[in-house]
Nucleic acid binder design. Structure first.
Lengths: 190, 190
DNA sequence: TATAAACGATGCAATATGTATCGTTAATGA
DNA sequence: TCATTAACGATACATATTGCATCGTTTATA
């Protein structure tokens, strides 16, 4: 049962929240995460610095909030039921977000390394959601070999994407999507 | 021809460099990268803060220096010539380093995201060296399908390892090594 | 023994963080 | 309608960190 507790006092400004998230992602894109300051975000978003501190403990919290917002877009796409087209659509969408906002996601991982509590929140609010979505897609292809664990399979796909995103030595492009599709198909029909 | 230019003046203290690298990695392990300060490293290493600034532009430079130092250990292991044993030895060694110093490597990736010049140095001094080593091992297994690019194959293996390292949702253990070995073998004999 | 550069230390301006406080604004509810 | 409550933008402040400059000292080479 969801309790809709009405609270007294001025409600949180959703416009301000949105402005913060958008200004933040834009600054990260332009300057890189380490050069983004809270004050810079406040000025760019046109809000008070205190408003940011009221809702976010620090920069990484903004990144997490922004990341989960953006990533939910993909997850809400309906599935066709066909393994190949759904998998390819997933890759295309993931590549698009990654190419645009890769820095932000990498930072979540880096921050999570040192902070167990934060790592759990990243997992719950971001990683696990995307994994469940991909799992649903992969399961549409029947004939999984018993020896192949779902966890491992997901790690391989997300890992490959992440690695390219982070290292930047090769692009997230159509060729890579083809290679992923071929390999996954081959492994799933061992 | 390598010119051994002898320089006047007091030579760099290799003891200080080693102390800095060791203090840095220890602090990263304890506090996480974002909470490590130059002053903290200097105090822990027992050197002057100016000595650190003399050799390193900022924290990420220390991380890169430390990472390439540690990673070279693996690469210097001689190969037996047998694909399976060499691949498994590579995994075991990589897992050991990753489990101990994962945070530091993740930070290199995060930092490289925003800085193209730094990204290139990370690639040259660290990533490419490890990739060449794994490539040599994988090539020992004959019968590569023509459709399978070396780049992609390396991305899949390193990606899987990185992803587990960063997300921390599953360990770098013997089971994972078995899964990687089985999958790689299967893909390489398509 | 003169020269040169690294060493540890210390000082300093500039910048960022995180907290506190202020008057103002926008909601609820009696 | 009007008291209550909490978010809002702003501003001030103590604290911490950075990166640079300077100092006398130490350890090399020529």
């Amino acid at each position: 049962m969801k309790s809709v507790t009405t609270v007294k006092g001025r409600p949180r400004s959703l416009e301000a929240r949105q402005a913060i998230i958008e200004a933040f992602t834009e600054l990260v894109r332009q300057l890189g995460y380490s050069k983004v300051t809270i004050d810079g975000v406040a000025k760019a978003a046109g809000v008070g610095r205190s408003t940011i501190y009221r809702w976010y403990k620090d920069k990484s919290e903004i990144a997490l909030d922004a990341a989960s917002d953006y990533s939910l877009q993909t997850v809400h796409m309906p599935l066709s039921g066909d393994f190949e087209s759904d998998f390819r659509a997933f890759l295309q969408n993931t590549f698009a977000i990654g190419n645009e906002l890769g820095t932000m996601y990498t930072v979540l991982m880096a921050e999570a390394q040192a902070n167990t509590e934060f790592a759990k929140r990243v997992w719950d609010k971001y990683s696990s959601i995307r994994r469940e979505h991909l799992e649903e897609i992969l399961k549409q292809k029947g004939g999984w070999p018993a020896s192949l664990s779902t966890t491992f399979m997901l790690d391989l796909v997300f890992g490959g994407i992440w690695y390219r995103l982070m290292s930047g030595h090769a692009p997230l492009d159509d060729t890579f999507a083809d290679e992923l599709y071929d390999s996954v198909s081959h492994l799933l029909s061992k």
